[in-house]
Simulated scan of single mutants.
Amino acid sequence: MIEYPDVQSSLPEHQIPIQVVGVKGVYYPILVKRPGKTINLVARIDLSVDIPANRKGADISRNLEAVNDILGRGEIDGIETVAKLLSEKLLEKIPYSNMSTVSIESDYFTPKRSESGKESMVKYRIHGKAETVRGKSTAESIGVEVNGMNACPCAMEGTRAILMDKFKMETEFLSSVPSVTHNQRNKVKLTIKTSPSYPVEIDDLIMIIENVFGSPLLPLLKRSDEANIVYNAHINPKFVEDLVREVVFQTVRKYSGFPDDTEIEVSSESDESIHPHNAYASIFTTFGSVRKSISKSIYA
């Protein structure tokens, strides 16, 4: 019988600890059971652990063993739960590691109706993450990426000034209606730290973002739907800065019972139509910090 040497456990040439060793791009079907529905996902999973300075390599195969152990159980209640279970299983299987991280992403489809009543399937990108430190509780997060349309408020006021100069008799009317501006397709990403005590529904996060945009982006649109989406964007034009602030505000208001140390991250990126570059904004904060900021602005 051949004895295969354990090369990973040997001493490396340079004894320096490594914080992240693992695998990326493990694809696996996940069956998620939520109240009233079951969702089939094809998820991309990234898994990693740390290794000490005196170890040449990690036992990479144990990452895949953990995936089979956890996802072979059948239905699970969310991808953040999958990430948590995998992260904890990694430390169980790899005793020389003290920290593990698991990230999961998947396309998520849900039906949406336009104002004209036409239904189509809309694709979103959902993600879950878990980080476990040995001897401590696991930190979980859940999030979503949503595409929408925003109209530039700067160009709108610029064209309004031009029109009011050209049509001086119509200044009252022109000041009361949206003006011409350029549009962008915008991607908003929202992530919240969560736990079993403070659950979050992906559909609620999607609704928050789409309400801030004014309308969802839909594959199937009739003429009236197209007009309404454009009109809704123009009656409430937004910079990327406006979008991230409004999404943070609405999320904290939605989950008013969440503790102050709940972390939230929101980013917004616009594919600019009149620039060769994109506009971008991001907020990383806590619910408590947002509540303090809102209170100061009310009484300022």
Rank of each mutant, 00 (worst) to 15 (best):
Asp77Asn: 15
Pro17Met: 08
Asp260Gly: 01
Leu71Trp: 06
Tyr108Gln: 02
Val212Asp: 07
Ser61Glu: 13
Thr81Met: 13
Ile142Met: 00
Ser137Gln: 11
Ser197Asp: 15
Leu243Thr: 00
Val42Cys: 07
Ile104His: 04
Lys118Gln: 14
Ser267Glu: 14
Val240Lys: 03
Ile235Pro: 07
Asp50Arg: 05
Leu218Glu: 03
Lys112Phe: 13
Val122Glu: 06
Asn147Ile: 13
His275Leu: 12
Glu226Leu: 04
Ser106Cys: 05
Phe258Arg: 01
Asp260Tyr: 01
Ser9Trp: 05
Ile51Lys: 09
Ile51Pro: 02
Glu201Gly: 00
Asn147Tyr: 14
Ala43Leu: 04
Val252Phe: 06
Glu140Phe: 00
Ala155Gln: 10
Asn183Met: 12
Glu88Lys: 06
Met164Cys: 09
Lys37Pro: 10
Arg44Asp: 05
Met207Ile: 02
Ser273Phe: 01
Ser48Phe: 03
Glu3His: 14
Pro216Asn: 03
His275Lys: 09
Glu263Met: 10
Thr194Leu: 00
Ala300Cys: 00
Ile60His: 11
Arg73Gly: 00
Phe249Cys: 00
Asp107Phe: 12
Glu241Val: 03
Ser137Pro: 01
Ser282Tyr: 10
Phe109Leu: 15
Leu218Phe: 10
His182Tyr: 11
Ser137His: 09
Ile298Ser: 05
Arg62Met: 05
Ser137Asp: 12
Glu13Asp: 06
Gly158Ile: 11
Lys84Arg: 15
Glu157Asn: 06
Leu217Ser: 12
Thr285Ser: 15
Ser116His: 08
Glu210Thr: 07
Leu47His: 00
Pro52Cys: 14
Tyr96Ile: 08
Glu3Lys: 14
Glu263Leu: 11
Pro216Thr: 10
Ala227Asp: 11
Lys189Asp: 07
Glu157Ala: 07
Glu172Cys: 00
Asp204His: 05
Ser179Ala: 15
Ala83Pro: 05
Glu263Tyr: 11
His127Ile: 03
Lys93Pro: 01
Ala227Arg: 04
Cys154Trp: 01
His234Ala: 10
Pro111Lys: 10
Phe213Tyr: 15
Ile18Tyr: 00
Thr194Phe: 03
His275Ala: 11
Thr251Ser: 12
Val247Met: 09
Ala161Tyr: 00
Ser9Pro: 04
Ile192Trp: 02
Gly117Asp: 13
Pro259Tyr: 08
Glu145Trp: 12
Ile45Val: 12
Arg73Ala: 06
Arg160Leu: 04
Lys222Thr: 07
Phe284Asp: 06
Ile39Phe: 06
Leu90Arg: 06
Ser97Lys: 11
Lys112Thr: 04
Val188Glu: 05
His182Lys: 10
Ala130Thr: 09
Ile294Gly: 05
Thr81His: 14
Ile264Ser: 04
Gly148Trp: 04
Lys254Arg: 15
Asp46Arg: 03
Ser282Ile: 13
Ile51Trp: 06
Arg134Pro: 03
Arg55Thr: 13
Ser87Ile: 04
Arg62Thr: 07
Leu205Ala: 08
Glu145Thr: 07
Lys222Trp: 07
Ala130Pro: 10
Tyr96Pro: 02
Ile51Gly: 02
Val122His: 03
Arg73Ser: 09
His277Cys: 02
Ile142Thr: 06
Asp261Gly: 02
Glu263Trp: 10
Ile76Glu: 08
Ile104Ser: 09
Ile104Gln: 09
Glu105Ser: 13
Lys84Trp: 11
Val146Phe: 11
Pro153Gly: 07
Thr138Gln: 05
Glu265Leu: 08
Thr138Tyr: 11
